[in-house]
């Protein structure tokens, strides 16, 4: 379950109530950022960060490095397969 979609934090609109404006493909919506704030992450640190939004709440900050790692693994799965194919073709 749980429809969630990455959106970018553009502006903190209410520090007291922990509300930020996010943007996704030109669509804006106010979201609550309480779940992505912590001792090491203050509201202003979030500007331009990508967060996963679910029912009007930012639930997690997208870790760009991890995203790239995943994409790299996906690439490698492909390469492995391509190599096998080349080998098969070589045998023929």
């Amino acid at each position: 379950m749980c429809l969630g979609i990455p959106a970018q934090i553009k502006e903190i609109i209410d520090v007291d109530n922990q509300v930020a404006m996010v943007n996704l493909s030109g669509v804006s919506r106010a979201v609550n950022i309480a779940c992505v704030l912590s001792d090491v992450c203050q509201a202003h640190d979030l500007i331009n960060q990508w967060v996963l939004v679910h029912v009007g709440f930012a639930l997690s900050v997208v870790d760009e490095e991890e995203a790239h790692k995943t994409l790299k693994i996906l690439d490698e799965i492909g390469e492995l397969s391509a190599t096998v194919e080349e080998m098969n073709q070589g045998e023929k």
Partner: peptide, 23 residues
């Protein structure tokens, strides 16, 4: 769409599907 479209690439899928079939 960032962090969305990269994970919807059909070309990439073909390769993984082949791996899945072998597995």
């Amino acid at each position: 769409m960032k962090y969305v479209d990269e994970f919807r690439n059909p070309e990439q899928a073909k390769k993984i599907l082949k791996e899945i079939e072998i597995l």
